[in-house]
């Protein structure tokens, strides 16, 4: 019965693992719901801001704003990579890292000097491993990112861009399209691309002036783009973890079926053999 005991041990350990993955799946599901709520709650602000900037924007004003400066060629760029602090989320982090590497490679091929800003332990760990210098490393952004987190990430970049020290800023994030689809994407947040107007523009009275309003709102627009990237990435992380843990739980179930079948067969064989021995022994006495 030595084999049987060994199988029992494996059944027990698979059961325990399944318990853990099932719990993690449920935790990720509830965290994901709250993260999705935050993604949805962030939408009205972005819409309102885009609306007003689009209606005030005019090409003549563009040259007055450092954030709208369109450099002819990109000499220095920054890439902000958003990853998670924790693993066990399937290919979530490696997809983001792959996307960041592609973006960096593309910029460097075009002759730009690229500085990397990485959020999340997973991304930092990877770039440390490959020995790349990181301009900024952040692990303090939790799974409830705030508008202040976004501001602290991008304000220095905005200042550098306005001063002409940077020609482009990209953010590598996960786009949260749905629970099943959250592809990594790299978006350019600076220079600001002109938002397209949704509704027809009205004739507004502007205080103090179109230019002053734009100069107050453009930084808010950039910060908001980063804030939305943060909340979407968190939602995508939880969705990825949920899927990964669901697969692990399902696989554990399948493995348990096979192990239990093997164990029962071994036990049955053992009993059959014992009966045969008893019957054989009894027959020998006659």
């Amino acid at each position: 019965m030595a084999k049987g005991r060994e199988l029992l041990g494996r059944i027990k350990s698979t059961e325990n693992t399944r318990k853990i993955t099932r719990t993690m799946e449920m935790v990720a599901t509830s965290k994901m719901k709250r993260a999705v709520d935050r993604v949805v709650a962030a939408r009205p602000y972005a819409l309102a801001l885009t609306d007003v900037i689009a209606s005030l924007y005019s090409p003549e004003l563009a040259s007055d704003f450092p954030l709208l400066r369109q450099p002819a060629d990109v000499k220095r760029a920054a890439v902000v990579l958003l990853t998670s602090n924790r693993g066990l989320a399937g290919a979530f982090n490696s997809n983001l890292i792959k996307e960041a590497r592609a973006t960096v490679a593309q910029l460097e091929a075009a002759g730009a000097e690229v500085q990397l800003h990485v959020v999340g332990r997973k991304g930092i760990g990877y770039f440390k491993y490959v020995g790349r210098d990181l301009a900024v490393q952040r692990t303090d952004i939790t799974d409830k990112p705030t508008a202040d987190d976004a501001a602290s990430l991008v304000d220095t970049l905005m200042a550098a861009f306005a001063a002409g020290e940077l020609d482009a800023v990209y953010v590598v994030q996960s786009q949260f399209k749905s629970v099943l689809s959250s592809p990594p994407a790299s978006t350019r947040v600076l220079p600001v691309t002109r938002p397209t107007a949704g509704a027809a523009t009205k004739d507004y009275l502007l205080f103090p002036s179109a230019g002053e309003i734009l100069s107050a709102l453009l930084p808010a627009y950039v910060r908001n783009a980063v804030y939305r990237a943060l909340v979407e990435t968190v939602a995508a992380e939880q969705a990825a973890r949920r899927t990964a843990m669901k697969n692990a739980t399902d696989n554990a179930g399948e493995m348990l079926n096979v192990l239990r079948r093997t164990y029962n067969r071994a036990r049955q064989a053992n009993i059959t053999q014992e009966i045969a021995e008893i019957v054989g022994g009894a027959a020998a006495l006659d």
Binding site: V52, L56, K202, D203, Y204, L205, L206, F207, I213, L217
Partner: peptide
């Protein structure tokens, strides 16, 4: 609280954007 002091809005106000 507008940038230069308080603004009151009642119905029928003209279309306006203020910082």
């Amino acid at each position: 609280p507008a940038f230069d002091g308080e603004v009151g809005i009642l119905t029928g106000h003209a279309a306006m954007v203020t910082v």
